[in-house]
Design a binder for these strands. Sequence first.
DNA 1: AGCACGCCGACT
DNA 2: GTCGGCGTGCTC
Length: 768
Amino acid sequence: MPVSAPSWLVAVPRPIPAYDFAPPHGYTGPLPLGCRVLVPWRGEPLVGVVVGTGNERQSHRLREALQLLDDPDMPWVAPATVQALGEWAASAALPLGLVWDDLLGVGWTPALSHRVRAVAGADLRAFAANAAPAAVPGPEWSDGSSYLPALLDAVREQGLLDEDFTPVQPTVSRVFASELGQGQLTPKQREAAEWLTEYPGQASLSSWARGAGVSGSVVAAVLGKGHAELREEPAPPPALTPGAASWTSEAPDALPAEGLRWRLNGGKFSARARALAPRIQSHLRAGRSVLVLAPEHATLDRAWAELSGLAAPCGTEAILLSGLLSPEARAHSWGQLRSGAARLVVGSYLALTAPLRDLALLLVLDEGSDAYKLPSGSRAWVPDVAQAIAAAHRAELGTAGVVPAVEIVQWPALELSMPRVRLHTVDYGAPPQQPELGPLSMPGQAQSSLGYPLSHDLRAVLRQVQERGRQAALLAPRRGYSALLRCPQCDYAPQCPNCDVPLRFHRSTHQLTCHQCGHHQPVPRSCDNCGEAMWQTKGPGTEWLAQEVSQLLPGTPVYRVDKDHQDDLTALHAGESGVVVGTGLMLAQPAPPELALVAVTLADTWLNVPDFRASERYHALLWELAEWHPARAPLLLVQTFQGSHPALEALRSGESVSAYPRQEWELRRALGYPPHACLAQVEVAARDRERAHSAADAVAAALYSAGATAQEVLGPAPAPIARVRGVYPYHLLLRARSPERLRELLDAVSSVRAGGRVRVDVSPRHLT
DNA sequence: AGCACGCCGACT
DNA sequence: GTCGGCGTGCTC
């Protein structure tokens, strides 16, 4: 008796667990871990990834996989990565398919040609039911797409279908001269035909016409008379982003040597790149691979510019991998890595699963950046996944950024020196009355003799900047005009119809926009509440601030940079005098060359956030501002109600970038926050408020009956925005002392049928 | 996630 | 009578 082949566990890009399939008919090779496989899914072929061996005991008959798409010797994803994703998904109690869907960005939709035929001797006409006999495959190969998928699947399930999926090579059509033409050509047409003989293989008729110097109708006529023909040719590989010029660092490797994790902080970006170079190059020279992750595109571009040149001197290539690439370019880059032709990847989170040969170093840039939180289904915290992947590959895990995250401040470190910060604080004094931070209750001129938004000191420095023809940057709390539209009569602010938040006013479009769901509408003629026709629209956004600066400095150009409004900064970057007002987004751009002043107009915006990481973010922001243009060392002016905040003190005293995170690390130990605890936020939502509430209570009850303590379960509480996109979310916060304990709690959550939509966010970034 | 099924209310 | 809202369940 032959031993039945073990089944395969296959992850498909759906928010469900991995499912079992029998190997394709006749397959006898080893378990193709990390290879893509076509499986029957609801009657149609679907690409999945083999992630393990299936359960031996199955209650139902397994379907056979249709076809293996990758050579088991060259899997689409490294087996160690497969293992890491499996472990991470389990630790977060997430269905494996959801995790794969989020983290594998390449290879789900290969172009395949599908051929089918009946197995020898089978007559499939019975399957046609009332359709025409031609609607079923015969004994000869024919195109699978010409049959109903459901019919093919019925035949397939009976084992009567031979089928074959072959990758389709992408082609382009090119124009060539042809001998087979008939009929006379006019002089113009002959001219065009002769030009084509000289320059064959034109990519389009218009390029031919342009090249030959004739109109499109002339070349069309030549083609029509058969003196030219279109031929399909294999498409050339897509152009990959060229790397920077080769360079090799002469400096010795000063990074921590012992252990598998380290951090590199302080210094300018380029200084950190120089410090990383020896380590990266020694791995590449040893024939191993290095993966560099960046949180967003500005950092990615800088990293590519600084690091891509390290590959060539080590006899390999660098590959840029991000969602901005075309699908073809992504697939081609993937191929370069899979074949081992390139061993240095600089990429976004999509590069996490890149098929690298012998990964030696996984480098996470700006490890604390909130941009690493994926907004999609898995809500993965990319550095968590990166740790799992590095561990599975037994690779070094390095991090590099200006300021270390509190979570990693105890790692072995190399810290580069920071420039001395020229800091000036405008202290508005007593903390503002907290509960209302509406734009109208902002620290206004009436409340402070210092002046807001432009304090006396800031005005003075701005005038100096103008007089000396220099440049200044002002960091605004919010984008747009960003005010609530308020009725001066009854103080009513128009609300979003889907969410429980007031709409925000954008002056440029003269629209009201919901910053939660994107709903927008024109400004109503009069107040919905009392009928008053006047609206007040003052608020602390970039637009208002820019207006104030323009009034203060007539004749000086004022630019705005935020998500909605992006002025052309060419003149500023050319060195012309001006002031730029922006949100944090502004820092993603290079600093203006003549920058003499960076001002934080209201630092408390970063502090008055109900999140235990608020002060950590504030501290990191201050150092990033200080590092933005280290050569010029502009004055950093901070307007705040908390002039003696320890984060500010850390800059003022010129301590190292890790001094404040160390302080926070101790504080969090006392409070039981990460890294001394593992957090997860559970969101329970329903269309009906009462149902959402009772569902949240049911989740809490399930947790307690599974042995959770009051220390471990906080809530449930209604979400800070009581209604979002038409549903009422409730939040529970889980706080466990270890990943294992968190997993126990999450398993209790996923086993309960609460009667509402339950979503889990492990390592949440924004707590409320 | 999709997609089908099935149950209730409002119409040509 | 049916059309269509959306709550529930399933996908090897």
